[in-house]
């Protein structure tokens, strides 16, 4: 691979690019959200294995999602999205029941309104709980007739650090705390990180964050310790439906392509892969996904680009501005000298 692809574009072997000579194949996650049942075993297994501290026990009013988003102390996050439409050709079994529309739309409004007043706009974990007017004593759907019966599907997706081929967090880290491992993953060394916070703004996915009481940045390590011991990461191990699949990235990509084809044949036309494409803005993700709706619905950026793509051009602009400053200073004195 050419040098220019060190910053942006497809890169065959990020571990070698980072200087690992003899190294195992690049590994990653393929998260197939079409089989996720939202059990959160991954969240729990991750916390247990990695000794990640508790970060607020709140009811967020976002369906069954009370984690909110990825952060310094949530390295797996299961998103829950309620939609009034069927999943593929599935029958949600609601047609004989006196069910009204789900509360999804209403709660989404309440949550979005509440977030506006949160200190970091909801960018923190465990945002304040919101009042949904529960408990209520009415039967769900009481007072509405069959005309309000709706289709329903539940999208669940376990989000994680993408272990980008071109990782914004890694590129900007000034201490070398973030590094590319022999497995091609991206890991923070807690004994090096000085909490400068640059990585937090460098990540185009909003994954890594600083732990307020600890001052250092934390995120998924893809269980670097387990990998070195020949084990698969804790979340993949715990996932009961194999929604989270771990393995060499090449193999996962093939498997994902087959699964996508299968779903399209089964009539789930909305299935799509996210982060699979090595030609995308981050050179492809080490952890990629099969989604059933647009990425932004899951809180993922639709077309992320590593900021480093523009680094050469940014330094050029800065050099021009710096030269102009020097020239201007010289000019103001030279004119005076002539007088």
């Amino acid at each position: 691979m050419t040098d220019e692809h060190s910053l942006y574009g497809p890169l065959e072997d990020p571990a070698a690019d980072a200087g690992h000579q003899e190294h195992p194949p690049r590994v990653g996650f393929f998260t197939d959200t079409s089989v996720c049942i939202g059990c959160k075993a991954c969240e729990v297994a991750c916390k247990e294995w990695n000794d990640v501290p508790e970060d607020g026990l709140d009811l967020l009013g976002m369906s069954f999602d009370n984690t909110g988003m990825l952060g310094a102390s949530s390295w797996r996050h299961v998103a829950f999205i309620e939609q009034e439409r069927p999943l593929g050709r599935q029958d949600p079994g609601l047609s004989d029941l006196p069910t009204g529309p789900s509360a999804a739309e209403h709660t989404a409004e309440v949550v979005a309104d509440g977030l506006r007043d949160a200190p970091r706009g909801g960018g923190e974990l465990g945002t304040e709980p919101v009042d949904l007017g529960f408990p209520s004593f009415e039967l769900p759907g009481a007072g509405t007739g069959s005309e309000t019966r709706t289709d329903f599907r539940w999208l669940m997706s376990s989000d994680v650090c993408k272990h980008c081929t071109h990782a914004g967090c890694l590129d900007v880290c000034p201490t070398g705390a973030l590094f590319r491992t022999e497995f091609g993953t991206v890991v923070v060394q807690p004994d090096i990180c000085n909490g400068c916070g640059y990585c937090v703004s460098g990540c185009p996915y909003g994954v890594i964050d600083r732990r307020p009481d600890d001052g250092r940045a934390w995120k998924c390590t893809l269980c670097h310790d387990r990998l070195r011991g020949g084990l698969e990461p804790a979340c993949a191990k715990a996932c009961p439906t194999d929604s989270i699949q771990f393995g060499p990235l090449d193999e996962l990509r093939e498997r994902a392509d087959r699964r996508l084809e299968q779903l399209h044949e089964a009539g789930v036309g909305e299935a799509r892969l996210y982060g699979r494409d090595p030609e995308d803005g981050v050179g492809g993700d080490g952890a990629f996904f099969l989604l059933l709706d647009e990425p932004e619905v899951y809180g993922l950026p639709p077309d992320p680009v590593v900021p480093t793509r523009d680094l050469p051009s940014m330094w050029k602009h800065a050099a021009v501005a710096a030269s102009a400053l020097l020239a201007a200073t010289a000019a103001v004195f030279i004119r005076e000298g002539r007088r």
């Binding site: 988003m69 409004e109 949550v111 979005a112 996915y205 890594i208 809180g299 993922l300």
Partner: peptide, 29 residues
């Protein structure tokens, strides 16, 4: 969240024009 229109000095785009996860930020501030 469709509530944004009610505080239209706060949002750049009406919520009905884009989709998001409960109006949560995608990036970390």
């Amino acid at each position: 969240g469709a509530g944004r229109d009610r505080h239209d000095d706060q949002g750049v785009v009406a919520d009905s024009e884009f989709r998001s996860y409960y109006g949560r930020p995608v990036l970390k501030p």
